[in-house]
Lab assay of single mutants.
Amino acid sequence: VTTYKLVINGKTLKGETTTKAVDAETSEKAFKQYANDNGVDGVWTYDDATKTFTVTEMV
């Protein structure tokens, strides 16, 4: 189990959250659901070296 981080650069929501998951794909699903639940829709990137997802909304 690995800890993954999500950085949110939204128009109205900014911040970070973490989750523990067995792999990046599992954490990505959880993070995308979290973003969707909070009305964040944007461009996703992933940095495997830091286990960090970033979602950026276009303004």
Rank of each mutant, 00 (worst) to 15 (best):
26 T>G: 06
53 F>S: 00
39 G>Y: 05
20 K>D: 14
10 G>D: 03
40 V>P: 00
26 T>Y: 05
8 I>Y: 06
32 K>L: 07
7 V>L: 08
29 K>M: 10
43 V>C: 10
29 K>C: 08
8 I>N: 00
38 N>L: 15
27 S>Q: 04
40 V>D: 01
38 N>I: 15
2 T>F: 14
7 V>M: 07
17 T>L: 15
37 D>N: 09
6 L>Y: 02
48 D>K: 07
28 E>K: 11
33 Q>T: 08
10 G>N: 05
9 N>R: 10
14 K>M: 09
52 T>E: 03
29 K>L: 11
22 V>W: 11
49 A>I: 10
53 F>W: 12
59 V>L: 13
10 G>A: 07
55 V>D: 00
24 A>N: 06
31 F>V: 01
14 K>L: 07
21 A>P: 01
34 Y>S: 02
11 K>C: 15
5 K>W: 11
39 G>L: 05
31 F>D: 01
5 K>V: 10
56 T>L: 05
57 E>M: 07
10 G>H: 08
3 T>E: 14
45 T>C: 08
38 N>T: 06
30 A>P: 01
15 G>S: 12
37 D>G: 05
34 Y>H: 04
51 K>R: 10
2 T>D: 10
4 Y>C: 04
6 L>I: 03
17 T>G: 04
55 V>M: 04
11 K>A: 13
54 T>Y: 12
20 K>M: 14
50 T>N: 08
39 G>H: 09
12 T>E: 10
26 T>D: 08
42 G>L: 02
45 T>R: 06
4 Y>F: 12
32 K>P: 01
44 W>I: 02
46 Y>T: 00
13 L>S: 08
14 K>F: 10
2 T>S: 11
3 T>W: 10
3 T>R: 05
41 D>T: 13
25 E>N: 09
58 M>W: 13
43 V>N: 07
29 K>T: 07
56 T>S: 08
52 T>W: 00
3 T>H: 06
30 A>F: 15
8 I>P: 00
16 E>G: 08
22 V>M: 12
28 E>G: 09
17 T>H: 14
32 K>G: 02
37 D>C: 10
12 T>A: 08
42 G>Y: 03
46 Y>H: 00
55 V>G: 00
56 T>V: 07
10 G>S: 12
58 M>Q: 11
46 Y>R: 00
19 T>K: 07
57 E>T: 07
33 Q>H: 06
49 A>D: 11
47 D>C: 09
57 E>Q: 09
59 V>G: 13
30 A>I: 15
57 E>K: 03
36 N>L: 15
10 G>Y: 06
43 V>R: 07
33 Q>F: 05
57 E>D: 08
40 V>T: 02
39 G>C: 08
50 T>H: 05
11 K>G: 09
23 D>V: 02
46 Y>I: 00
42 G>A: 02
33 Q>V: 09
31 F>I: 01
52 T>M: 04
18 T>D: 05
10 G>E: 02
42 G>R: 00
50 T>Q: 06
49 A>P: 07
21 A>Y: 05
48 D>N: 09
50 T>A: 06
13 L>W: 15
20 K>F: 13
36 N>R: 15
9 N>M: 11
22 V>G: 09
5 K>S: 05
2 T>H: 15
22 V>A: 11
40 V>W: 08
16 E>R: 05
3 T>P: 04
16 E>V: 12
52 T>A: 03
54 T>P: 00
45 T>N: 07
2 T>G: 08
46 Y>E: 01
6 L>G: 02
57 E>S: 06
27 S>N: 00
15 G>V: 14
20 K>P: 06
27 S>I: 08
42 G>D: 01
23 D>L: 04
39 G>N: 11
50 T>D: 04
33 Q>W: 05
23 D>C: 05
30 A>D: 06
44 W>L: 02
36 N>D: 12
36 N>S: 14
52 T>Q: 04
32 K>A: 04
33 Q>A: 10
8 I>M: 07
22 V>R: 10
59 V>Q: 13
26 T>M: 10
54 T>L: 05
51 K>P: 00
32 K>N: 03
47 D>I: 04
26 T>C: 07
17 T>I: 15
2 T>V: 12
35 A>C: 15
8 I>Q: 00
37 D>R: 09
26 T>P: 01
12 T>Y: 14
9 N>C: 14
23 D>A: 03
29 K>R: 13
27 S>C: 13
38 N>S: 08
17 T>R: 12
3 T>K: 07
50 T>C: 05
45 T>D: 08
11 K>L: 15
50 T>R: 05
27 S>Y: 02
56 T>E: 07
35 A>F: 03
51 K>M: 06
46 Y>A: 00
42 G>Q: 01
8 I>C: 06
40 V>F: 10
43 V>H: 09
55 V>R: 00
47 D>A: 03
17 T>K: 11
34 Y>L: 06
21 A>L: 03
3 T>L: 12
19 T>N: 11
30 A>W: 15
9 N>W: 12
55 V>F: 03
6 L>E: 03
24 A>E: 06
5 K>Y: 15
30 A>Y: 15
45 T>W: 06
27 S>E: 01
55 V>Y: 03
3 T>F: 06
22 V>F: 12
3 T>G: 04
2 T>Y: 14
17 T>N: 05
11 K>F: 13
57 E>H: 05
5 K>M: 07
19 T>M: 15
6 L>D: 03
42 G>N: 00
16 E>A: 07
2 T>M: 11
47 D>T: 04
35 A>L: 11
15 G>P: 04
11 K>Q: 12
50 T>I: 06
6 L>T: 02
51 K>L: 09
19 T>L: 15
21 A>C: 11
53 F>L: 02
48 D>Q: 09
7 V>Q: 06
58 M>D: 12
9 N>A: 08
40 V>E: 01
35 A>S: 04
32 K>M: 08
47 D>F: 04
40 V>L: 10
30 A>N: 08
32 K>C: 05
34 Y>M: 04
7 V>K: 07
18 T>I: 09
28 E>T: 04
34 Y>G: 00
13 L>P: 04
41 D>Q: 13
15 G>W: 15
39 G>I: 03
52 T>G: 00
9 N>L: 13
15 G>H: 13
45 T>H: 10
33 Q>M: 09
1 V>T: 12
26 T>H: 09
54 T>R: 04
50 T>S: 10
6 L>M: 04
